[in-house]
């Protein structure tokens, strides 16, 4: 028996829509302009959205249930929810669908955005949609191979986005790539960070920084640590790691000869934890050497010159539990080329 739903008073419509899932409200919104304008009454603006370019848009409701909208070119599957209840297949392109869902539901937060696949060009439409609507993006992951040229076009767009929690970039840019961030999320991880200069590091406001394939050297790290020791600098920093072939034993860091590690027993393990939406990054640095900031804050640094040349620095949170353990014998396998300044 049909029921003239839109004749309900507004508060009642809201009560009914709160009991509907994103698929039902999406279908309803497709019925008419008036129906579309009503669906926000269901509290949809509190939902969060995720987008995996170029295949899926996901909506996470307040009860943490996730509903996936998958793009399909097979008309027989359009709007088919019978198969499983947590996804439907829709004919629209992902960019078009994302814009429609954002506008229809009034969603303000993108929980995660990632490109899955090789084509960063088609990904480019998504940040533009989000920038136009001044959306907050909690997490952005850029993946893909063969995108050396595309990343040059994408980074300026990404710089305009409001990324608040995490930016992880696994794309390898061209060797002449340059970029300068104007604002930072809480965590960054760049798998190819040779373009990330010491000036950018000194201005970085992140809590958690991981730089792989970096071009930073001992002097840069020394400069960073000298600045960190001054009171009031890097107030958010909890963890920094730099993987660079330019870290060598030809010069010291804070007057310490490399490699730098604590050989006293018992040694301590200091842990930095960053809780993302999908993953928790928990990094423990053992055998670190203590560095004290002017305000008394403790940092623990460690530099390894094994096949893995890495600088790690953890700022100790006073609430963390320290782990003490006995040092064990280990092999310091130093590569033959230590001391050279190879390009990354």
């Amino acid at each position: 028996m049909p029921i003239a739903l839109l004749n309900f008073p507004t508060d009642l419509l809201g009560e009914v829509f709160k009991l509907c899932n994103p698929f039902e409200l999406y279908f309803l919104s497709k019925c008419s302009k008036r129906a579309r304008s009503c669906v926000k009454l269901g509290g949809t603006k509190h939902w969060k959205i995720g987008c995996c370019c170029c295949s899926t848009v996901s909506i996470e409701c307040e009860d943490n249930m996730i509903y996936d909208f998958l793009q399909t070119k097979e008309p027989n599957y359009y709007y088919d929810t019978a198969f499983l209840n947590n996804y439907i297949e829709i004919p629209e392109g992902i960019g078009e669908l994302l814009a429609y869902l954002l506008d229809t539901f009034g969603i303000r937060t993108v929980k995660w955005l990632k490109n899955k696949g090789r084509d960063l060009h088609s990904f480019l439409q998504i940040p533009k949609i989000l920038i136009d609507r001044n959306m907050e993006v909690e997490e952005l992951w850029l993946d893909g191979f063969g995108n050396e040229d595309s990343i040059v076009n994408i980074m300026p767009v990404i710089n305009q986005m409001n990324i608040t929690r995490e930016f992880e970039c696994l794309v390898r840019p061209r060797s002449d790539f340059q970029n300068h961030f104007t604002r930072y999320p809480k965590r960054i991880e760049f798998r190819y960070s040779f373009w990330f200069t010491i000036d950018q590091l000194l201005d970085c406001t992140c809590a958690h920084i991981e730089l792989f394939k970096s071009n930073l050297n001992n002097q840069d790290i020394n400069m960073f640590l000298e600045k960190w020791k001054r009171a009031g600098t890097f107030p958010n920093l909890q963890y920094l790691s730099i993987d660079s072939k330019r870290i060598d034993k030809n010069s010291s860091i804070l007057d310490m000869v490399l490699p730098i590690k604590n050989t006293e027993n018992p040694s301590k393990a200091v842990t930095a934890i960053f809780r993302g939406n999908h993953r928790t990054h928990c990094i423990s640095v053992d055998n670190g050497v203590k560095v004290v900031k002017e305000d008394g804050t403790e940092g623990w640094l460690k530099v390894e010159l094994n096949s893995w040349r890495q600088f790690q620095f953890v700022v100790r949170n006073p609430d963390d539990v320290e782990q003490e353990f006995e040092n064990e014998e280990w092999d310091d396998e130093e590569p033959d080329d230590i001391g050279s300044d190879d390009e990354n």
Binding site: P2, I3, A4, F27, C31, S32
Partner: peptide, 17 residues
Amino acid sequence: VKGKSPEEIREIWMIPT
């Protein structure tokens, strides 16, 4: 409207075009 298509929802909830 559980599991219904947009067209079925239009009929059940009498949504005018």
